[in-house]
């Protein structure tokens, strides 16, 4: 078998194992929280008797290990359980929320990733001169400002002062793509500004590191233009670190956008999770936790795979 296939298969198997471990942690984490689902449902009016009855009815009196495997079995069949607060099927509700989150993350990524890499290349090309300083300075500033503040500043100017964009990102079924894009323009802008800096700075650092190599001198002595040297000879050798930081930021776009969702009242996963944490709705929290873990592990796995495939030594062994 090609060693590359073996390597990839091993990484994927490891990813699955890691996800299983995460599911154990999530389940155990919600188990050790004080109070259980039964006391959460019954609230103040709970007595020993009603609690015991409800536990029996929900199957909570059985050992945790049994319940874990039941939960895991359900998850594998697409059954994430039922919400305790509104008795709705979690998978159905989550699907809508997830698609909103992915929609927002997708457009933020489509803008931020190519822009970050391009700005990184430009910063390397003009290293130490004003374009580099301008790019590095503004991205550093955009990382440093908290995203809720960025959100309010953007909303104040673009929505309130100049009335260019809606300040609230309401989504409903009847909107066409143009309306939807208009609605998410502000949150996308804020997310782009938040993730751009990390990716651009890592691209710049990774390429500058490669620029020390002897083969860069070879390329310069062929009479290539500075930008061709950077894009054709340096970038292909800087892919691994760049892909890694890109994936971490993509994961953040899916998992970490709760603040931006709240600022713009966007109906995504983050808000959904936060709402149900407040209501002690354990099955929803578990389902969201598992999906976030899957996104993180999946994207990091993808980063590993791309780095492996981008390495000619692994792709074309001797």
């Amino acid at each position: 078998m090609h060693p590359l296939i073996r390597l990839v298969a091993r990484r994927i198997a490891l990813g699955i194992l890691l996800l299983l471990a995460a599911s154990v942690l999530i389940f155990a984490g919600t188990e050790v929280l004080p109070g259980d689902v039964a006391s959460a449902i019954l609230g103040q009016g709970a007595t020993e008797k009603t609690l015991a009855n409800l536990r029996e009815a929900l199957g909570l009196d059985r050992p945790a290990v049994v319940r874990y495997f039941e939960w895991l079995g359900g998850v594998l069949q697409g059954d994430l359980g039922t919400s305790l607060t509104n008795r709705r099927d979690i998978a159905t509700t989550l699907a809508g929320r997830m698609s909103n989150t992915l929609f927002l993350a997708f457009w933020a990524a489509v803008i931020a990733v190519p822009l970050a890499i391009l700005l990184g290349l430009v910063a390397v090309r003009y290293q130490g001169r004003w374009p580099d300083k301008l790019i590095s300075g503004t991205t550093l500033a955009s990382i440093s400002v908290p995203e809720f503040l960025l959100g309010y500043i953007a909303a104040f100017f673009l929505a309130v002062q100049f009335k260019l964009l809606p300040s609230v990102a309401t989504m409903h079924g009847g909107m066409d793509l143009g309306d939807k894009l208009m609605a998410i323009a502000l949150p996308v802008l804020v997310l782009v500004l938040t993730v751009l800096g990390h990716m651009m700075r890592m691209t710049r650092a990774a390429i500058l590191n490669v620029m020390q190599s002897a083969y860069i001198e070879t390329a310069e002595l062929k009479g290539l233009s500075p930008f061709a040297v950077i894009a054709r000879h340096a970038l292909p050798n800087a892919i691994a670190p760049v892909v890694n930081v890109v994936m971490i930021n993509l994961a953040y776009l899916v998992v970490g956008v709760v603040v931006v969702e709240v600022v713009f009242v966007y109906p995504g996963m983050g808000q959904y999770l936060v709402d149900h944490v407040a209501k002690r709705d354990v099955p929803v929290v578990q389902a969201c936790g598992l999906i976030f873990a899957a996104v993180y592990i999946g994207l990091n796995l993808l980063a590993d795979l791309i780095s492996i495939i981008a390495n000619p030594r692994l792709r074309h062994p001797k």
Partner: peptide
């Protein structure tokens, strides 16, 4: 200079192992 390099004058480095781009 760019027009001269790689066209009128070329260079062979000491360590070819380092002077070739590993990704191409």
């Amino acid at each position: 200079l760019r027009d001269l390099r790689g066209r009128r004058v070329t260079y062979v480095a000491q360590s070819a192992a380092a002077a070739f781009n590993p990704a191409k």
